[in-house]
Amino acid sequence: MRLILLPLLAVTTLTTGGCVAKTAFDVVTLPVKAGSKAVDLATTSQSEADRNYGKKMRKAEEREGRERRDYEKKCRRDPDCGPYTGFVAHPEGGNRYR
């Protein structure tokens, strides 16, 4: 009986000891992980900012293209229309009218 109990006790100690240590480690590091996740959600990374800026500029350029096409169509009917004074997708990110 003792021969069976000793190896069983050794195996049990080795397997559960790691589980307890891992659980304790998880409990200790949980606030740090939660805090870093909150910071990630609250801030915008540079790649997200670049992606958002690119999307904004593509939309502005599409709008400018539509308005210029409409303006050119109008100028074909009325040659005295003058220079384009509509919406311009500004390269610095600020959209404006000329």
Rank of each mutant, 00 (worst) to 15 (best):
E61G: 03
V39A: 13
C81W: 02
Y53F: 15
A21M: 07
E67N: 07
K74R: 10
Y71L: 01
K37E: 15
D78F: 10
V39G: 03
A24E: 10
T43W: 02
K56T: 05
N52C: 00
F87I: 05
L8W: 06
T85I: 01
L30D: 14
L8I: 05
R96F: 12
K55I: 04
F25I: 04
M1G: 14
P83W: 02
G94H: 12
L41M: 09
A38H: 02
T85D: 13
E72P: 00
F25L: 13
E67A: 07
L3P: 00
E48V: 14
E72G: 00
P91M: 05
E64D: 08
Y53C: 03
K56M: 10
K74V: 00
T12G: 09
L6V: 14
K74W: 02
K59G: 09
T12S: 10
G54T: 12
T43S: 09
K59W: 03
G17A: 13
V28D: 08
C81Y: 02
T13G: 15
S47T: 09
V39E: 13
E61H: 04
T29I: 07
R68E: 07
K33A: 13
L41V: 09
E61C: 10
G93M: 03
E48H: 08
G18E: 06
K33F: 03
L41P: 00
T43M: 10
L3K: 13
R76M: 04
Y53N: 12
E72K: 06
R68L: 15
S45M: 03
N52V: 05
A24P: 00
N95M: 09
K22A: 15
M57V: 11
N52Q: 12
A60Q: 06
R96L: 11
G94T: 08
E48N: 11
T15K: 01
T13Y: 09
R76P: 00
D78T: 14
G65E: 11
L14A: 15
S45I: 02
P31T: 10
D70S: 12
C19M: 09
V39D: 10
R2G: 15
T23Q: 11
V39H: 05
D40N: 12
E64S: 07
Y97V: 10
